[in-house]
């Protein structure tokens, strides 16, 4: 059974979003997603300054088996990609909701309130419907 922290919000494509004190958001992939992918061996994160649209592929996580896109959960400007993941991609497996974050975004005006993000309870239902 995968972990779904109550204080985060989620997408159907298995990203999580954490609102930080300065108004930016941190984005990662869920415990369910890291488990389904298996051992990650390479992670490509976006560079600071890049503008992304909601639903745009903006990072790549690669397991031994395959490469998968990660989608921007909301529109905004990238303020940081997680620098640790270049050397230690497995951090996403071991700490998906913490040190394994992928990027930080400054939401475009209105993007955070307008984004189609789910509560932990609703994301849990998505996982149950997927059989996870």
């Amino acid at each position: 059974m995968s972990t779904v922290p109550a204080d985060l919000r989620y997408t159907k494509s298995h990203e999580w979003v954490r609102t930080l004190a300065d108004g930016t958001v941190e984005v990662g992939i869920t415990d369910h997603a890291q488990h389904a992918l298996g051992d990650l061996v390479f992670v490509e994160v976006p560079e600071a300054g890049r503008t992304v649209k909601a639903g745009e592929p903006c990072a790549v996580v690669e397991s031994v088996k395959a490469a998968s896109d990660v989608y921007a959960p909301l529109a905004g400007e990238v303020t940081a990609g997680n620098p640790r993941l270049g050397e230690a991609p497995e951090t996403v497996n071991t700490d998906a909701y913490g040190e394994g974050w992928l990027m930080r975004l400054r939401p475009a005006p209105g993007a955070l309130t307008g984004a189609a993000l789910m509560s932990a309870a609703d994301y849990q239902k998505v996982l149950e419907a997927e059989g996870g």
Binding site: G38, D39, V41, S63, V64, K65
Partner: peptide, 9 residues
Amino acid sequence: PVQYSSQIG
């Protein structure tokens, strides 16, 4: 079976 626990393991 593609993997049991960890493919790298």
